[in-house]
Design a protein around this nucleic acid. Structure first.
Lengths: 343, 343
DNA sequence: CTGAAAGCGCTTACAG
DNA sequence: CTGAAAGCGCTTACAG
């Protein structure tokens, strides 16, 4: 009853292999591979036999072997600017969920709004031969653009839309949204409307340009009421910029913040300073982040469909991975003005 | 000048392979492999030669081939309950960053506080042979526990600590933190202190038990002042529970919320209802989330070191992956009471 | 310190 | 509709 001596060159991992399933089912390995992936025509009787054998043996395909042999993986790289902005977390959460349901894992990458970091992440992740790619917006280095194109990996751009053959995107028009909220403030009788922004990423600047267009169209544009800070967005910064603006341009009668966290901070600062909102100054935000409906007064804002964007981007990407052509390469999911008491 | 006819059985991927680097450097493939990984002793002259050749040819190792041959990948699975709780996002962000620096990618998994979802994720991710695993807390199914143990994949538990041989953890004592804040409220002269919680995950219940211990010790425990809701935590729920508590137990003179979002919602509700904080009722939160310092009054809370937890968990895991034994298998990073105007 | 051989567990490309 | 052979690009396990 001595233990069998191990053969010299063994290094099996112990897991059940496709070959073992094949033997158990009495077919060839290729047939098992095809039956399990549902690829090509396999006699339905064999499919059943293979499935049963796989089930019985607890067979789990090895993703590494699969990736090596097919040069495709089941991972999707998702690149977002920041994890500290709830906007992107919502998007990521929705995308991740949809991808997981379809059997794909998400490799997240945080670019910190820096094109060089994005390029480095792209380089690192692309060597993993991801099945697909989700990237934020269109603002990237030429090298990054080429990396994506040369990789041949299907790619969907999120948050903005862009009509160009071979480019896929899911988002909405940031400048339209910026224009719409500004026009709404104008329609409510506000005239000296300020725009306050932080971070100054491409999409923030698009909102700014929407604001500017609307103000110019109304003949009310005053550059002095634009307060643009490159610092990262936060409630604390919103409070600070609000105080600065009310000090420097005290006759401002409305403020459009490029993000809700700034606006929330401003609302709390107004409370501290005893500045009446909306009586003296109306306040509007962007994104309808959590808590905006709880503010005092409740914050008017632009609701953006980030969860839907994540979901639809995943759906579009899965189609591209299957080799399908999406109905529309650019999907505009729109936005919605949410008017609450701050206006 | 006709194009060369492709040989019959080619399916090279076009990328530079290790073999090509070996040929260029005039050494064997194994030597390249070892030189590039810095493993085992390789003559330093050869290392230089190999590095140069790899650089020149733009060689990028194939992770799939590497994973298949070595049965280990460069991916770490990180399982957290929720992406909508900033606490976990901060932890994930820090862990992800540290892991990336060391050449590891993070595969995130969201369990929604459900042991069955965690078990399914574990099953799905473990088949990818991750190099390591980071999981939240210790509350999981027996099957999940076994999956982790049987996989042999190094695993670090975060948020809680637990001293047991072979179990690695980075966190702090949730019950100590709950007790400390309660004692702080008592020390400030509050006597009818309520505890309001949502979600009711294991860590929330540990905080509750810390509260209970402190109250019992002071001879002031009144079960009627515990308001526990299984609903997901949010500012809106905090407002709702605050109103309910002030209606049902109007003589409550302090409220300890298990999370800052609840407390923030309560503070705003108090403002709406004209309930003076802290004059009539003191309010304390947990985690020191963003915005808590901006509240009116600013929120007193327990600052938890989630970024440090993420960072240290990554560091401990990287050590375990290298086969090192951590100095202490259980790392307690503590917490800090932050006293602001709400108390 | 270095290498020739085998193997990791799949799928591709042909052929029938 | 099914299969025998080769190959994906690395590393392991030996041997020297």
């Amino acid at each position: 009853m001595s233990a069998p001596t191990a053969p010299k060159r063994r290094r099996a991992t112990g897991r059940t292999t496709l070959a073992e399933v094949a033997q158990a089912a009495g077919v060839s390995p290729i047939t098992v591979s095809r039956a399990l992936r549902g690829e090509r025509a396999v006699a339905s009787e064999l499919v059943t036999r293979v499935r049963e054998a796989a089930e019985r043996l607890g067979y789990v395909p090895d993703p590494a072997a699969r990736a090596l042999a097919s040069s495709r993986s089941t991972q999707v790289a998702v690149l977002i600017p920041l994890l500290s902005n709830a906007l992107f977390v919502d998007l990521l959460d929705a995308a991740q969920r949809s991808l997981l349901e379809a059997g794909y894992q998400s490799l997240i990458g945080v670019t910190h709004y820096r094109p060089d970091e994005e390029e480095a992440l792209l380089r690192a992740y692309l060597m993993h031969r991801p099945a697909g790619l989700i990237v934020t917006g269109f603002d990237r280095t030429e090298a990054a653009r080429r990396l994506i194109a040369d990789s041949g990996v299907p790619c969907v751009h999120v948050m903005e839309t862009h009509a160009e053959p071979g480019v896929y995107s899911v988002g909405f028009s940031q400048s339209d949204a910026g224009r719409a909220m500004t026009q709404c403030l104008l329609a409510h009788g506000r005239q000296r409307i300020a725009f306050v922004a932080a971070q100054l990423d491409p999409r923030t600047l698009q909102r700014a340009s929407g604001y500017r267009q609307a103000m110019q169209l109304a003949g009310r544009h005053e550059p002095k009421r634009e307060l643009l800070s490159p610092r990262p967005s936060s409630m604390a910064l919103g409070a600070e910029l609000f105080e600065q603006l009310m000090r420097e341009q005290p006759d401002t009668d409305a403020i459009f913040f490029c993000n809700d966290d700034l606006a929330q901070g401003a609302l709390l600062a107004a409370l501290r300073l005893g500045i009446a909102v909306p009586a003296r100054v109306a306040v509007a935000g962007f994104n309808d982040l959590t808590g905006s409906d709880q503010m005092l007064p409740a914050l008017s804002t632009v609701r953006t469909p980030r969860a839907a964007i994540g979901r639809e981007a995943a759906r579009m990407l899965l189609g591209l991975i299957r080799g399908e052509q999406p109905a529309a390469p650019s999907l505009d999911l729109g936005y919605e003005l949410v008017l609450r008491q701050s206006l």
